[in-house]
Design a protein around this nucleic acid. Sequence first.
DNA 1: TGTACATCAGTGAACGCGCGTTCACTGATGTAC
DNA 2: TGTACATCAGTGAACGCGCGTTCACTGATGTAC
Lengths: 230, 230
Amino acid sequence: MAAGAASPRERYRSQVRAEIKARAWDQIATAGASGLSLNAIAKELGMSGPALYRYFGGRDDLITELVRDAYRSLADTFGAAADAGTGLSGLARAMRHWALEDPQRYFLVYGTPVPGYRAPDDTTATAREIMATLLDVCAAEDAAAPGSAEADGPGGAGTAPADALEAHLADHRDWAGDHPAPPHVLRRALAYWTRLHGVLSLELAGHFTGMGFDPEVLFTAECEGLTRRG
Amino acid sequence: MAAGAASPRERYRSQVRAEIKARAWDQIATAGASGLSLNAIAKELGMSGPALYRYFGGRDDLITELVRDAYRSLADTFGAAADAGTGLSGLARAMRHWALEDPQRYFLVYGTPVPGYRAPDDTTATAREIMATLLDVCAAEDAAAPGSAEADGPGGAGTAPADALEAHLADHRDWAGDHPAPPHVLRRALAYWTRLHGVLSLELAGHFTGMGFDPEVLFTAECEGLTRRG
DNA sequence: TGTACATCAGTGAACGCGCGTTCACTGATGTAC
DNA sequence: TGTACATCAGTGAACGCGCGTTCACTGATGTAC
């Protein structure tokens, strides 16, 4: 039970598992998630078909684990960016870099859902972790330079909802867990999140190619619009 | 050559073609685009496999035509909304309705691109038509209530770029065709476009389910943020 | 140190499946005289 | 109006393919005495 002391066999196992996953990612990058084939992976690894069943329950299990890893990797990237103290724009740059690094990994998480497939349950926890990080950074930035105090009533610290959305969010904050962020911070976090995905998903899907402008300029402008007064 | 005078055979042909496409859409809605099967469609239509080759060159041709139709349908929806004179928010509502009506149709156009597949060339023309409509409405709205004149220099009508993005767009406006919109209108159109997709794509992919709030409230708030001062 | 046994990675053959696509053919529908 | 011919929708059999997955088995690696 000595945790961490992996037997040689265990070492080997996890090594092969990693290699299988690496090949799976290659394949997803080449042919998309729907083109992932166990046999093809096995062939590329020099082993033959059924061997993979020693390492994964089957095709679905493998995909599920890739999805899990993708979520985890984004959460870690976000966490590191938050720790770096580069603020919201740091988060945005990290996310953009993460997405461009491997578009198909982005799409595996945020792309077209396969009607039958359901993501593993623990990914929702990771998704919430990501939102929590975003909320933290939003709250910190807001504390440093309190913004959006535009339409506040005489309520003081700006915790009163300023419009319909903020009012709605004040009443529906399940996703924020027990985060104490005031409505306008909730709002900013959500807006940041969706705008970021708006530019990224269109860019990665190639809908800006041939339009002439640089998506990155649009991306940073959209982000700045929410940091310096949104 | 008498245009419009379709022979009975031609009538029948286009009727069957339409039925095939309808079944194809059903199948896409159920199993996604990658799960579309010619044989399955034929079976559902009560005819057997190879018969479909009388109507389409093959699976790829069929998908291509579905993509074309999806683009066309969005362009028409946009055009109608613009003609209705309900402004930018009318466009947004139309788009949202179009997307919710058949999420898989939305994803066929804006979802995860299949690495190998390339959309038919004429869809780019339709895409430009959509952007043109958006630009028209943006320009009209701007003319009615000139906004975003925030950081304008003494240049008068607000045609000078106000920031890095507007400057960049002023120099890279291929996508706008010969539309005379000033930079800040180009900017607003693009931002509107990406924000709209940001909320929609996340919502349709199910990333808001379980978060507690109503995506529609977020959607309309994001849109309003760009009409009443952005 | 050496032997007996258990664990487990990997193989190869086989199963059934559904796919896209081709081909030669039948039979009905339309056209020309 | 009737006959001869062309057009064309749809069939059924067949092709080859790659897929996920199962099963019984071999052979190497580790463990226990």
